[in-house]
Design a binder for these strands. Structure first.
Lengths: 329, 329
DNA sequence: CCCATCAGGCCAGGATCCGGCCTGATGGAG
DNA sequence: CTCCATCAGGCCGGATCCTGGCCTGATGGG
């Protein structure tokens, strides 16, 4: 029988509950003798899982932090919670964990029981993506399909909407998924164009992995990495914003409410500071973050940011002014 | 030796990679004969993990979705990504998975290797919580400590800042962690007051679980649940907003960009719709969500919402109007 | 001081596991 | 269409491992 391994897994699962388990109770639950439990604990320790024991009358075993991640044994609700959390996060890629986060999501969704899937998607619908206003929302499913294809080295077919509005069908060998600020890009070898391309993931539709495996291809000019390739083509795609804003509040107050990725603040007085930085985020996103700082500020540039702030300010002011008699029905 | 169980775990880990593994390759990696691999696959299937096999020359094994969650084997980066994602999510509790999400976070952090912890916290600092403006940010650590105490039934000591500004030390038996919209509450039996209380988690400071275990206590009036107790005391704490807004856009367009928890829209014409609902969210939060819809709208009430929109609109307009600088393009 | 807990040695019997060899079935590529 | 790589699984012999039981010690709390 597959007795012992199964028991070890169950034991691991019990020990992940944040409480202490006396050996006798574990023995009862797993229906073996206490001696076997002691041996199992030994085994787990040999495997590298740091099981800590406290002696005495209220003692017991507990799994603590070690040097390697033990397998996480989640119950249904926890799995759903993680899936929902990751999906929500996948939209506004947190710098530094972007790709890993999608990988984890792909891994989880690969084995997520069917009965939990609808719970995930319905919960996700309840949380509107906090996207910038340009409507470039990304379907987490798209991301996970692409991520799977990247790691399994399978060819990918998908529809793509080019920048000029032309729709096309593509077939490509996906190389890597990269995120910059709040956008996702796929670096891939386009089989029809016979060249390396970068695709904006929010313009990819219905990607699906054809089973066909491919051998990793050399990237173009030697030594280059996917991120570089992306950086090159992105400089054509996504204009850089040269942000220049002064806040009427002390630098430390503002810094606490501003994402670090936006850049550093220079204090410019007792109660004011200035943000000068370049960003590839969208105007809408930057405007939102600025508004959320919660103090008065003044945008000096770029012009499109100033304009967007003006439009937004206007919209809100009008929303608050009850122009009931004005042009509306 | 603890050979077989360890191998099964490694096998499970390999199979979670989204790709197909031919038996021979698995045999090579795990340094056993292919026959043993076939047997191991059998064992996993017996344990309930649905391993799918495709035959043919490009075939192999793959772990697919089954009826139960298999143990998730994460690498370092994935673990960090999940921790960061959950922490970010813990702030704005997604309705329905609130508690589970915190439980999962507690479970993960219990075993998260020390060398990864600083990565999590530094990454978290990079993402400013998208909180409403009232500054009631919640430290995820606080939540996880409380969640652990709830599941392990340990007494909790913590500092508390009452609504009237009075600080105090509390000792309590935590019963449940509940979130409503975007706030967290702890339902607990206060040992000093000798009665049930609900505490706002954002006002809890330095909670720590004394080792002392306690026996679950009966909730007050029969049949009541933690959520009810909370609802009762909350009606005193958190005023309800009666929101009334008209949007100048079709109902389905607006609905797609509005959190479902805010309530339902009534179409009021070809290109307009109305939102009338009650919410316990903060004014700042509601205002933000309205602004993010991205179309013109008009707030009819409540007054504090209208006022807040006015302030915000004013601030943005002034930010865009460059009262001081005159020249630069 | 006593009791609960963890820690681990020793032993015997039995279950389990492994490798190797075999036969079939199945799907993809040439 | 044919060939090949893959999965599926039966059978067997020998080595290995696992379990339960019993023991002695150590440690911490009430």
């Amino acid at each position: 029988m597959t007795d012992t391994p199964a028991r070890l897994l169950r034991l691991l699962s019990l020990l992940q509950t944040p409480r202490e388990w006396p050996g006798s109770e574990l023995a009862g639950r797993l229906e073996v003798s206490p001696r076997t439990i002691r041996r199992d604990i030994d085994r787990l320790r040999d495997l590298g899982y740091p099981v800590e024991a406290s002696r005495g009358s209220v003692g017991g075993y507990r799994l603590v932090a070690g040097t390697a991640m033990p397998p996480l044994l989640l119950d249904d609700e926890e799995a759903v919670a993680i899936a929902v959390g990751l999906r929500a996060g996948a939209g506004h890629a947190i710098e530094g964990v972007d790709e890993a986060s999608v990988r984890a999501l792909a891994k989880l969704e690969q084995v997520l029981p069917a009965r939990l899937r609808h719970r995930v998607s319905s919960l996700q619908n309840a949380t509107v993506p906090l996207t910038r206003g340009d409507g470039a929302t990304i379907d987490p499913r798209t991301l996970t399909v692409i991520a799977s294809a990247v790691t399994s080295r399978e060819r990918l077919r998908f529809g793509y909407l080019a920048g000029d509005g032309a729709a096309s069908k593509r077939q490509a060998e996906p190389y890597r998924l990269v995120s910059t600020g709040s956008r996702w890009y796929l670096v891939a070898y386009d089989l029809d164009r016979e060249d390396w391309r970068t695709f904006r993931v929010d313009r990819v539709s219905e990607p699906f992995a054809t089973g066909a495996r491919f051998a990793p291809r050399e990237l173009p000019a030697g030594g280059e990495d996917g991120a570089e390739l992306l950086a090159r083509s992105m400089s054509r795609l996504q204009p850089e914003l040269h942000i220049d804003v002064t806040f009427e509040a002390a630098a430390d107050v503002v810094a606490a409410r501003l994402p670090a990725e936006l850049g550093a603040l220079e204090p410019s007085g007792e109660h004011s500071c200035r943000l000068r930085t370049a960003s590839r985020s969208s105007v809408e996103w930057v405007a939102l973050r600025l508004a959320l700082v919660g103090c008065a500020f003044e945008a000096l540039g770029p012009p499109e940011l100033v304009e967007h702030l003006g439009v937004l300010g206007d919209r809100l002011s009008r929303a608050a002014s009850r122009p009931s008699a004005a042009g509306r029905t």
